[in-house]
C-alpha cells in the first residue's frame, strides 16, 4: 500500500530524514519507535504532504501511484489520513462542522461522537481549550469519520488519562479493522513512545527511527521490550 524509497527530508534548511525506506502492505499495522527529535513526526507529516517538510530526494508511492508531489488534499482523497499530536485550534469552526467535512457531508461523525461519549464537544470549536486526551479523541473521531485506508497516528496515547486509554485503544482498533481476521483493507503507521498501543492491538512490524534512518525491523513487542531494557541505540545495533 505504501512504499518509501530513499526519502530525504529537510525542515527549514535542516536535514531531518536521511534516506528512509519503508514498506507497508495492505492490512498491516506498523509501529514506529524512536527518541524525541529523531524525526518520527517529520516522517508522518511528510507522508501527509505538509508544505513545511521539503522532500529533497526519494519518492512516496501510495497505492501504486507516485504521490511525492501531491498536496495533503489529494493524499486525503486517495485514502490517507492522519491524527496529529498537536493540531492547531480552528476558531469558529465547530467539531460538528469538522466531522461533516471529514465524513464528506455524511452524518457518520456525529453518530460516532455519541458512540464514543464525545457528543458534548460537538458544538465546541475544534481543539479550543481541549485537554490532551480530548484532542486525541477528537482527532480519532475525525479519522473514523474520514475512514482512510492508510492511518497515520502520531502518539495517540500522549496526554490521555488511564481511564480513557481504553477508549482510545478501541477507536484505533475500529480504524484499523482489527475485528476482521481476513481481508483487512486498512493499514496503519503508529508512532508510540510508551508502547501502550501494543496492549490493545496486534501490530505486525516495528521500526526504530534513529538519526533520520530506519534502523531495524522486527516484532514490535519484542523490540519494545528490548528498547525498555537497553535503550534505542542498543536495540538498533543488535538488530541491524
Amino acid at each position: 500500500m505504501l512504499e518509501l524509497k530513499d526519502l530525504w527530508v529537510e525542515v527549514e534548511g535542516r536535514e531531518i530524514l536521511k534516506g528512509v525506506n519503508l514498506k507497508i502492505e495492505q492490512g498491516e499495522t506498523h509501529i514506529l519507535f524512536g527518541k524525541n527529535g529523531s524525526g518520527k513526526t517529520t516522517l508522518l507529516l511528510t507522508l501527509m504532504g505538509f508544505s513545511r517538510y521539503k522532500i529533497i530526494n526519494g519518492a512516496i508511492i501510495f497505492k501504486g501511484q507516485d504521490i511525492t508531489a501531491f498536496s495533503p488534499h489529494e493524499r486525503a482523497k486517495l485514502g490517507m489520513g492522519i491524527s496529529f499530536q498537536r493540531p492547531p485550534t480552528l476558531h469558529g469552526v465547530r467539531l460538528r462542522d469538522m466531522l461533516t467535512i471529514c465524513g464528506n457531508g455524511s452524518g457518520r461523525g456525529e453518530i460516532l461522537a455519541t458512540q464514543y461519549n464525545f457528543a458534548e464537544f460537538l458544538d465546541r470549536e475544534v481543539n479550543r481549550g481541549f485537554s490532551g486526551g480530548e484532542i486525541k479523541k477528537s482527532e480519532l473521531l475525525q479519522l473514523l469519520a474520514q475512514d482512510p485506508d492508510l492511518v497515520l497516528l502520531d502518539e495517540p496515547e500522549s496526554g490521555v488519562d488511564v481511564e480513557n486509554l481504553n477508549v482510545i485503544g478501541q477507536m484505533i482498533k475500529e480504524l484499523l479493522q482489527k475485528n476482521l481476521k481476513r481481508h483487512r483493507q486498512k493499514a496503519g503507521l503508529i508512532i508510540s513512545h510508551t508502547g501502550f498501543i501494543l496492549n490493545y492491538l496486534e501490530a505486525d512490524k516495528g521500526h526504530i527511527l534513529l538519526d533520520g534512518k530506519i534502523h531495524c525491523q522486527g516484532n514490535p513487542r519484542e523490540m519494545f521490550e528490548e528498547i525498555q531494557r537497553h535503550g534505542y541505540e542498543e536495540c538498533a545495533r543488535c538488530r541491524r
Binding site: S51, S71, P72, H73, A76, G81, P88, L90, I101
Partner: peptide, 18 residues
C-alpha cells in the same frame, strides 16, 4: 496560518475550501 489550511486539507478539503 498555513498549518490551519493544511490541517483541513488533510481532512479532505481543497485549499480554497479550507
Amino acid at each position: 496560518a498555513q498549518e490551519e489550511i493544511e490541517y483541513l486539507m488533510a481532512r479532505g478539503l481543497s485549499e480554497e475550501e479550507a
